[in-house]
Simulated assay, not measured.
Amino acid sequence: MKKKTYEELVKESPVTYEMYANMEDDGNRYEISDGVLELMSPSPLFIHQLLLGEILFRLNASCRNEFIVAVAPLDVILSDTEVRQPDLVMVHMSRTHIISNRGINGAPDLVVEITSKHSLKRDKLTKRNVYAKYGVREYWIVDPSNFTLEQYELHGDYYELVDVYSGEETIQSQTAPCVSFSMDELVRNLPVPPDQLT
């Protein structure tokens, strides 16, 4: 079977995970949104990567006995026509059956997106609706422009904004009670101060 290019696949509808998994590797990252192949934004800013690394470190330090924590690039296969690559995912140890070499087959327990000006609308609207539809119990949107964390919890088939964390407030999660850090802790522990990254 000949591998198809992005240009060839983007003309097909719906694009399935099998088609996506067998496409030609062109060095770019893609997601499937309701059967449509979408090219992801350019490489994240350095502050994005620093924050992601610090969140990963904190979550592994406090939650690794209860959760598997993984970061992008990693396929989260929500359905045959809905494949996402969140910045970070947490899967409870009781649900490791959804993890395979290909990625995560189903909804993680918690998903984190670190937003940017390029992804703000997609993270706050499109992805929020998708993650709710497929049953992700908790969704965090981290904003590096003001160092806040929006916490959404699933109620039925929609998310409710339950808190917005900033400063020294300790982030608490019903989905992952092992979580215990503040946004200020994250920022203080970054290896490069954010004001040097302008």
Results as ranks from 00 to 15, higher is better:
K3T: 12
K4L: 15
K4P: 00
E7P: 01
E7T: 09
L9W: 02
E12P: 00
P14R: 11
V15K: 03
V15M: 05
Y17F: 15
E18V: 10
M19R: 01
Y20W: 06
A21H: 10
A21G: 02
D25M: 03
R29I: 09
Y30P: 00
Y30W: 07
Y30D: 02
Y30K: 03
Y30N: 02
E31A: 07
V36I: 15
M40G: 08
S43P: 12
S43D: 10
H48T: 08
E54G: 03
E54K: 15
I55N: 09
L56H: 12
F57T: 13
F57A: 09
R58N: 11
A61P: 00
F67M: 13
V69R: 02
V69N: 03
A70Y: 07
V71Y: 01
A72F: 00
P73S: 12
L74P: 00
I77A: 07
I77K: 09
L78R: 07
L78P: 02
T81A: 05
V83W: 11
Q85W: 01
D87K: 06
L88K: 05
V89M: 04
V91G: 01
H92C: 11
R95F: 03
I98F: 04
S100N: 08
R102L: 13
R102S: 13
G103P: 00
V111Q: 04
I114H: 08
K117Y: 09
H118R: 15
S119F: 06
R122T: 15
D123L: 05
D123A: 07
D123R: 07
T126M: 09
T126S: 12
K127M: 06
R128A: 14
N129W: 08
V130H: 07
V130W: 03
Y131V: 06
Y134M: 07
V136W: 06
E138W: 08
I141Y: 01
P144R: 13
P144L: 10
F147N: 06
L149S: 06
E150Q: 15
E153W: 04
E153M: 11
L154K: 08
H155I: 13
G156I: 01
E160P: 01
E160R: 15
V162S: 09
D163V: 05
V164K: 14
G167S: 11
S173Q: 05
Q174R: 15
A176Y: 10
A176T: 13
A176I: 12
P177M: 10
V179R: 02
S180F: 02
D184H: 14
E185G: 05
L186A: 07
R188H: 13
L190N: 02
P194L: 07
D195N: 13
T198Q: 13
